[in-house]
């Protein structure tokens, strides 16, 4: 069972440097762990506990509160079908029924080939395009059963790889600087209140992640949405032009 690899550990240390108190980096670091392994392993969480000087139980106890974290392997694609009120009124349960039949699994299940895990999700905030689905938290709106089938076909064929990274990858854009403003303030202002952001000052090695985000060759991310559905699609362009 893996711990964080050295590059991921460095990214975790960079995250710790952004916060006045290291523990604030816990959830972002757990996202990193899930990016590395696809889910949260016990060894990985123990490593995170070491980095933050916490007990492993504190890490696990926090992680289990949050729905996005998984503690067992999931498919390459986590397909979440929203069934909350807005999507339900637009036929979300028919879509979920179709998804179960198409994938041959119930919500919570994973296909035998390890490609898909299905979830019955709460509101995903794309209600202007219901019913909607997310795949690894990338959005696909206005889906009927045919649209769902096309989505699954495209995912299997790798045609959506540019917009849908493997499960666990939350953000493909890394922070490019540390916290120069806070450091400048700490250096120039007398802090007499006892609330000084000591961890950042006390651990200069951890507080200097400048440029860390640029390490390593990474393919450029365009952040365009050609196939997935942008949240702004629910803002009607004609409406905006007409009302300018």
């Amino acid at each position: 069972m893996p711990r964080l690899s050295p590059p991921f550990e460095q990214r975790a240390r960079d995250l710790i440097g952004l916060y006045p108190h290291p523990r604030s980096a816990l959830v972002p670091i757990l996202h990193l762990l899930q990016e590395q392994d696809g889910y949260l392993t016990e060894d990985g969480m123990a490593h995170v506990a070491e980095l933050l000087d916490l007990a492993p139980a504190e890490v696990r106890g926090t992680a289990t509160f949050y729905d996005m974290f998984h503690f067992e392997p999931v498919g390459k694609y986590l397909v979440a079908v929203c069934t909350n009120i807005a999507c339900m009124l637009q036929g979300a349960y028919r879509l979920l029924d179709h998804a179960e039949e198409r994938l041959g699994i119930a919500p919570g299940g994973t296909t035998e080939d390890g490609m898909f895990t299905l979830e019955d999700a709460e509101c995903l905030a794309l209600c202007g395009n219901g019913p909607c689905v997310t795949v690894n938290w990338r959005y696909f709106g206005d889906l009927d059963p045919d649209g769902f089938d096309a989505l699954i076909d495209d995912l299997r064929a790798g045609r959506l790889d540019d917009e849908v990274p493997p499960h666990g990858t939350l953000g493909r854009v890394r922070r490019s600087v540390g916290t120069p403003g806070t450091e400048a303030r700490v250096a120039t202002e007398a802090r007499t209140d006892g609330h000084s952001p000591a961890p950042a000052g006390a651990e200069p090695a951890a507080a200097a992640p400048a440029g860390a985000g640029q390490q390593g060759a990474r393919p450029p991310v365009t952040l365009d949405t050609h196939r997935s559905t942008a949240a702004v699609s629910s803002v009607d362009a004609a409406h905006l032009e007409g009302l300018q």
Binding site: G171, V173, T179, P180, G181, L223
Partner: peptide, 28 residues
């Protein structure tokens, strides 16, 4: 919200740009 993956990416990219532009950080 964690589920807003693209929003998080665009916000982080925008923040990186804002730092480089001098709108965030030391001596704005």
């Amino acid at each position: 919200r964690g589920e807003f993956a693209l929003a998080i990416e665009r916000l982080q990219a925008a923040l990186n740009e804002a730092y480089a532009y001098g709108a965030v950080g030391a001596n704005i």
